[in-house]
Amino acid sequence: MNRELTDTFLVARHDVQDSMRSRRLIVWILLYVCVAVGATFIFSRVLRTIETHIARTIAVEPTKETGQVVSSIQQSDSVRRMVDDMVDDKQLANQILNLHPLVIFYAWFSFAFMPFLVIIISSDTIARDVNTRNVRYHLFRTSRPAYAVGKGISSALVLLIALTISAIATVVTGMLTMHSAITIPLLTDLLSFLVKCWLFNLSFLGIALMASQLRRSPMQAQFLGLGVFFLLLILHPVSASQTGPGLARLWQLGVIISPYSHVNDFWYPDITRFLKAAVWSLGLGFMYFFLGYIRFSRRDL
């Protein structure tokens, strides 16, 4: 195997082991699980309240299983037409309406809020090592690309572990609070969205690692990561709303560089859309990582 690849793998493996021993991974997982469990619990309570109100309004006995009423409503023609009109896409409407409410919630929650956690947790990954000068033990032994990419791979793996455990926690909490059974379609849908959520969040991991390579202080790196995150969060809807010829077309750049512009494709069931979204997410993640690396490759350590 190429020496650089071997080094990248060594750095990644050591960093994952280090995360476990330093309890960083446990903190990550706990944070994800707490957020996922808390949000799922609130979601199921809200859903239960809505269903109880609906049952009382139409003067029937509420169902024991939360989500049953919503699932039935999802299948009604009037709701289907309404969702069709809302998303303006028959295929997407069909996909949403065929998903279990818990899966819809998990996917929406993961796409909307997980990036924030990724930024908060990963933005100091490399900055911490530079700040403590721990890099001085590594970077005469291996190259800076192997080190930085190894750190990135380790963060991506840790993110996958945290997301998987939080998905399991979501299912268990959902099933316990909604009193419904775990079915194979539910699990496969959840698994599919777990992978999609991971791929989508890799673009934000790229932003976090960019900040981590640009700043020496871990706190400054976190602030920078959050700053870029909120900038892109605002830039996406603003850029998307700007249309027109000439200089106004520059706003399209804002659409392209924002990971949120590509999240919709992850909701579609077809593979082409999925691949397109995955390529965009990975591409943006790599682009942000590389922007940070340009500085890291030349900086004094």
Binding site: R3, D18, R21, S22, R23, T132, R133, N134, V135, R136, Y137, F140, R141
Partner: peptide
């Protein structure tokens, strides 16, 4: 590779390792 090593003056080795 492997030809030169360094004992840095005040670099930190992660305590949990």
């Amino acid at each position: 590779k492997g030809l030169l090593t360094l004992l840095p003056q005040d670099a930190y080795i992660p305590g949990h390792s």
